[in-house]
Design a protein around this nucleic acid. Structure first.
Lengths: 125, 125
DNA sequence: TTCCAAGGTCTACATTATAGACCGTGTAAA
DNA sequence: TTTACACGGTCTATAATGTAGACCTTGGAA
């Protein structure tokens, strides 16, 4: 990809719908943020604390993308200091269901995966 | 993260099982590769073609990680030119189910997301 | 007068991905 | 005979991306 893109350009659509969606939510942080918003509305710094090791820039950028794609809404209360709340939209909530399946799978098979890593490591030695 | 790691070191386990699993399959390529393997066994270059825009290095590296975590097996046939086949393990196949939910969701809501992008873009202007 | 909060942005640096050359081996075409 | 190609990679230089942390704003409290 050598495409020259303006920093905030929105790529409207990719040929493959699955790629189009997975490219966005299949990154380092999106799923984690959506999961953090599952219990309800959260503020910026609260999300920072929830997730723990995300940088401000990535949280900001990823939230912007999720807003762009209609997963979440951003509400700014013009107070001082400012308050900004992020909430899942109906689309975002609807995504929770397949995601929950994924999380459940992860939880169920976690031990199997760790065991596989051990086996692999042993086989290399 | 300033941890010094040998290039092929295996991180055996992270504190949070969900993070542990999502950090691996929630990258640019893993889901796409697993999807490409869903119909059945595939060879290296076939996967390259299926996915289209993955680099050799990333395909190689991601396959290695998926093998490590027990999602796929790698079988080398000592012919010339060499033949290497990648196949989903039972664990990998079991992952297909929640992933299929995700893919179905993506397919279903794709148009809604594109519409959201358009709205967002209009709102910025 | 100085400090802090929240929610960011900006910049310098570190990490990671990409493109593409290169490798080895055997078969086939020129 | 030399050359070309296939496959499944690895290696290297460069480009893209992520991180840490300084900085910004504005009003209230110490």
């Amino acid at each position: 990809m050598t495409a020259i893109t303006a920093s905030d350009e929105i790529v409207l659509e990719q040929p493959c719908p699955i790629r189009d969606v997975l490219d966005r939510i299949g990154d380092q942080w999106s799923l984690l943020i959506l999961e953090a918003l599952a219990p309800g509305t959260r503020r910026f710094n609260a999300l920072m604390r929830d997730i723990g090791d995300i940088s401000k820039q990535m949280l900001s950028r990823t939230l912007k993308q999720l807003e762009q794609d209609g997963f979440i809404t951003r509400t700014l209360y013009p107070e001082v200091p400012p308050r900004v709340e992020y909430t899942l939209t109906p689309l975002g909530r609807s995504f929770l269901e397949p995601m929950q399946q994924l999380v459940t799978w992860a939880d169920t098979h976690h031990r199997t995966i760790v065991a596989a890593r051990l086996r692999y490591q042993a086989a290399q030695a």
